[in-house]
Every structure is written in structure tokens, then in C-alpha cells.
């Protein structure tokens, strides 16, 4: 790394105060995994600037918020604890090999399994759409998209970790059957879930295409993907 100490402190300082772009943040997150000096510099800034939080006016959360967190925690915990028991659906969810095996028989099957498993784990099985994004070659699932029919948000959830070269970014796209071209849903950080606002798009439709491509650092310079497709899938309606 041919960065001077000042460069390191400015870069990590900007990461902590938040002025880096999404792509630069993601790149730094990736580098931090293998760079102890970088991690230490970030932690130094976090600790030094933390007292600023005292200047923020506290805000009372709505009563529903804790219940929401509690049911999400219950959902992950039941997945965690039943994975050791005989409940086959939870075991399936936790078995990447099986996912891979399933995907080998076509990703529509994998998508179907995703629906079954997710609706079993999630507390109220809200109607909506589900997409399993799989590798175009090996069909192994990498990401899941969940969206309610009425909600203006979709959620992109990683199923595993992946490395992205420091000079590249992951970009998320969608395209309806009758659209002229794909629409960017923004840059994606490897291994991190993402809330995607859908309010500026037409309503989700069955079979709508979603894909994640490898793009330059700041994302595709044009209004369509320029790099290889890493994951692809189509929306399936959950009943």
C-alpha cells in the first residue's frame, strides 16, 4: 500500500464521518477485512468522534419498533435453534451444499424452496414477491430479494460472503418484461443487506428480472450494465 500516514488518516476519517461515496465505503469495508492497520485507524476515529453523539437530541421510537425487532430476532433465533433438530426446512436453509444441489436442478426450484423456507421462518408470511439471485454458470444462490405487494421497499439479503476487487463495485438492476431497458437500483455492498426503495418504479410484476453485475468502482457510467452478470433471478409471487 503506497499511502502516506496522512492519506490513511484522511481516508479512514472520511469513512467514519461519512463523506465517502457508497462505492468507496464498500471498497474500504472489503480492504479492512485483511488490513489490520486500516481497521485500527478506523477504530481510532470511531472512538475519538463518538462523544459527538452526545450533541444529538434523543428521539422516542414508536411503540411498534421493539415488537418488530423482537419478531425478527425470534425468526433468526428459531432458525438458529431448530437447525440442530429434525425440522427439515430449517436444516435446508442452513445447508449451502443443499442449496447448491437444488440450484443445479434449475433455479426455479431453488426459488420455490426459498419461498417455502422463508415463509416458514418469517413470522407473518406477508404476501409479496421473492427473487433468488443465482450465479449464471453454477446456479448457486448468492442473494435473495424480498418485497411485500403493498410496500414501497424491497430488501436484498446476502446468502454468503464474497470478495469484490477494490477497483470494482457490485451494481443491482431490474427490468420488467415490457420495459425498454434495465433500471439501476444502486450499488450493493458484498455480504450486506440493503433496503431498496421501489416508489419510483412501476409495481413489481411476476417474472421481473433482477441482476447484480460487476461494474467500475463508481458504478456503470451509462444507464445499463457494462460488466459481467454475477447473479440473476426472476420475481416469483408468494401466495
Amino acid at each position: 500500500m503506497n499511502e502516506s500516514a496522512d492519506d490513511l488518516h484522511v481516508l479512514t476519517g472520511e469513512y467514519v464521518i461519512g463523506t465517502l461515496s457508497a462505492a468507496s465505503r464498500a471498497a474500504l469495508d472489503t480492504r479492512m477485512k485483511n488490513d489490520a492497520a486500516l481497521r485500527t485507524a478506523v477504530e481510532m476515529w470511531e472512538a475519538k468522534l463518538a462523544p459527538l453523539a452526545e450533541l444529538v437530541e434523543p428521539v422516542e421510537p414508536s411503540r411498534a419498533l421493539w415488537s418488530r425487532i423482537e419478531s425478527s430476532v425470534a425468526a433468526t433465533s428459531s432458525a438458529r435453534t431448530t437447525s440442530a433438530s429434525v425440522n427439515p426446512s430449517s436444516n435446508w436453509w442452513n445447508s449451502l451444499n443443499l442449496w447448491r444441489g437444488l440450484a443445479a436442478s434449475g433455479f426455479a426450484t431453488a426459488a420455490f424452496m426459498g419461498v417455502v423456507v422463508i415463509t416458514k421462518i418469517a413470522q407473518p408470511p406477508a404476501p409479496g414477491y421473492m427473487v433468488v439471485l443465482v450465479g449464471p454458470q453454477d446456479k448457486s444462490p448468492g442473494w435473495v430479494v424480498q418485497a411485500g405487494t403493498s410496500s414501497q421497499q424491497a430488501r436484498l439479503i446476502p446468502l454468503g460472503k464474497m470478495e469484490v476487487p477494490g477497483d470494482k463495485s457490485l451494481q443491482f438492476w431490474t427490468k420488467g418484461d415490457d420495459w425498454k431497458g434495465p433500471v439501476s437500483l444502486g450499488l450493493v455492498m458484498p455480504g450486506q443487506s440493503l433496503e431498496i426503495p421501489l416508489d419510483k418504479l412501476p409495481p413489481l410484476q411476476p417474472n421481473q428480472l433482477f441482476e447484480i453485475t460487476l461494474e467500475p468502482y463508481k458504478g456503470s457510467p451509462i444507464d445499463r450494465p457494462t460488466g459481467p452478470i454475477l447473479f440473476i433471478g426472476r420475481a416469483v409471487k408468494i401466495i
Binding site: A22, R25, A47, A50, L187, E195, P197
Partner: peptide, 22 residues
């Protein structure tokens, strides 16, 4: 680092990720 600082960092990072990514 401190536990409280760690929790605050998770919240800040989540918030920054939302505003920068969207």
C-alpha cells in the same frame, strides 16, 4: 473499543449505508 461505541457504530454505518446507497 467500548460496547456502547460498537453499537453506535453499527447504527451510524447502517444509516450512512442507506443515505449513500440510495
Amino acid at each position: 473499543g467500548s460496547g456502547r461505541g460498537w453499537i453506535h457504530t453499527l447504527v451510524r454505518n447502517q444509516a450512512l449505508s442507506v443515505v449513500r446507497t440510495t
